[in-house]
């Protein structure tokens, strides 16, 4: 059996787990596998449990039930020792939601160096890693700037560089785009995509923006602590009804096509990007015009 990078078996998590009565079940019976080099978006509305899942993968939280296998290391409700957690966190980095609350130093490059400094990386190597990480996120020219003077998107890219400099194999983005303006969101998702494509980095992007999720190669939809859908963006977005039931919207184009299909128009299922939808509708009209239907 090929081993997966991340594997969850019947994973569950409850907040307030000490008292059985008022425990809030955040995740229930989650089973999934994630391989190295995948680009996955985890979608869900607020309170669906998607952030809890991310926090379990990084061992900020310990599972309440079931087991989680992270790069061959099994985590159960017993948790791991600090040293074992440290080893896992070297491999799985995390970028958080609020860009302000994750930058430690007063100079950009010193912040990027924070992670590898903690790992005890020697100085020459540190320098190289910091420069490379800053170049990857396109922030080299800001190396000596103060973080508080940067825009949200830039801060978030510095945070990504800080994780990259630790050379993890997987980065989890826990709603890292939620507090950014459209431009900042574009910057950050571009970096994610490039990391996945060029460095074969495993990327887990937790989000509630459909357009961003559509850029991933696989989407996992979480609703009420359970996996609702799991598949390619095409597969997931063509299941319009379950998505709407989960309180999620499909991309506008996809929804338009869905509505048109309901009215009996002959349109393909599973168009996700604006381009695809435009093409589909365009060719439909063209066909009709050619047949003099319109």
């Amino acid at each position: 059996m090929a081993s997966h990078f991340i594997e969850a078996r019947g994973l569950g998590f409850s907040y307030d787990a000490e008292s059985e009565s008022d425990a809030v079940v955040a995740l229930d019976d989650i089973s999934l596998t994630i391989d190295e080099g995948e680009y996955i978006a985890i979608l869900g509305h607020n309170g669906s449990g998607k952030s809890t899942l991310a926090k379990l993968f990084n061992l900020i939280l310990t599972p309440s039930r079931g087991e989680l296998i992270l790069d061959g290391k099994t985590v159960t409700s017993e948790g791991l020792s600090d040293d074992e957690i440290y080893e896992i966190r070297k491999k799985i980095g995390m970028v958080f939601q609020n860009p302000d609350n994750q930058l430690v130093a007063t100079v950009v490059e010193e912040d990027v160096a924070f992670g590898p400094e903690n790992l005890g990386v020697p100085r020459e190597e540190l320098r190289r890693r910091v420069d490379e990480a800053l170049a990857t996120v396109g922030m080299t020219e800001y190396a000596r700037h103060a973080p508080h003077k940067l825009s949200g998107g830039q801060k978030q890219r510095v945070a990504i560089a800080g994780v990259l400099a630790m050379m993890p194999r997987c980065i989890i983005f826990d709603e890292s785009t939620a507090m950014l303006d459209p431009l900042g969101r574009r910057e950050v998702t571009d970096v994610m995509e490039r990391l996945n494509r060029e460095q074969n980095m495993t990327v887990l992007h937790i989000t509630h923006y459909m357009e961003e999720a559509a850029r991933a190669s696989r989407i996992i939809v979480i609703s009420d602590g359970k996996i609702l859908l799991d598949g390619t963006p095409k597969e997931v977005f063509s299941s319009v009804e379950p998505l709407l039931a989960a309180g999620l919207e499909t991309p506008q184009g996809t929804e338009l096509i869905h509505e048109l299909r309901m009215l009996g128009f002959d349109l393909p299922k599973g168009c996700t990007t604006v381009g695809e939808c435009t093409d589909a509708i365009f060719s439909l009209f063209k066909e009709k015009k050619d047949n003099n239907d319109v």
Binding site: N58, I60, D82, Y86, R89, K90, G93, M94, F96, N98, D100, N101, Q102, V104, E109, E110, A113, F114, G115, P116, E117, N118, L119, G120, V121, P122, R123, L126, R127, V130, G162, V163, M166
Partner: peptide, 26 residues
């Protein structure tokens, strides 16, 4: 709230106090 967030973020970046740390700037 910031303090909690920052502490979590620091732990995720493998911060374990001063022991065994190297420094970029010397």
């Amino acid at each position: 709230q910031r303090a909690i967030d920052l502490a979590t973020a620091m732990e995720c970046r493998c911060y374990r106090g001063g022991k065994g740390r190297t420094k970029l700037v010397r």
